[in-house]
Simulated assay, not measured.
Amino acid sequence: MTLQHWCFSFRGRLGRRDFWIWQLCWLLMLLLLFTLAGNGLLDTQTAAFCVVALLWPASAVLVKRLHDRNKGGQWALLMVVAWMLMAGNWSMLPNEAQWLVGRFIPTLIMVGMGIELGGLAGTASDNRFGKPAQPVVFLRRRMADYQ
């Protein structure tokens, strides 16, 4: 799999190794953006634009990893639901319900998705989304380098 396919295509399958590499890269990019914006070295609107721009590759990696687990991309919407529940204002509910809806359920969804995507192996053979996951080629050497 090419680097371009890894970040921008929603087709195919992605193994755990490349999923975790993306998660680390994504975390480092967000950390850098928020650090620069927090220190005034980067405009907040520019940082927000970069975060939005990172949503496409993050979604592509997530969907391909779901495909490796033989699940459709619509399962990725669980992450959106978890984020919306966590960001919501649940003050109209009693204290216990606020905690349940605003913290427990989103945490349960995220932990479940974390185990599903990052901990469990993909299907070993072909599934409805294609052949088994191929590793991402990060550095492609020219043939002259091997001679």
Rank of each mutant, 00 (worst) to 15 (best):
L3H: 04
Q4M: 10
W6F: 15
F8Y: 02
F8I: 01
S9V: 01
R11K: 08
G12R: 00
G12S: 00
G12W: 00
R13T: 02
R13Q: 01
L14Q: 00
G15Y: 01
G15C: 01
R16F: 02
R17Y: 06
R17N: 04
W20L: 14
Q23P: 02
L24E: 07
C25N: 07
W26D: 13
W26K: 12
L30D: 02
L31G: 15
L31F: 13
L32I: 10
L36I: 03
L42G: 12
D43I: 11
T44L: 11
T46P: 02
T46M: 15
A48C: 06
F49M: 09
C50R: 01
L55A: 08
L55Y: 14
L55R: 04
V61G: 01
K64C: 07
K64R: 15
R65V: 03
L66K: 07
H67A: 12
H67M: 13
D68N: 03
D68M: 05
D68L: 07
N70Q: 13
N70Y: 08
K71C: 06
W75Y: 15
A76Y: 06
L77G: 13
L85W: 01
M92E: 14
L93T: 01
N95G: 04
A97D: 03
Q98G: 07
Q98V: 08
V101H: 01
V101D: 00
F104C: 05
T107M: 14
I109L: 09
G112T: 06
G112I: 07
E116Y: 09
L117E: 06
G119F: 13
L120Y: 09
T123D: 09
A124K: 07
A124C: 08
N127F: 05
G130W: 06
K131C: 04
V136K: 10
R142G: 08
M143R: 10
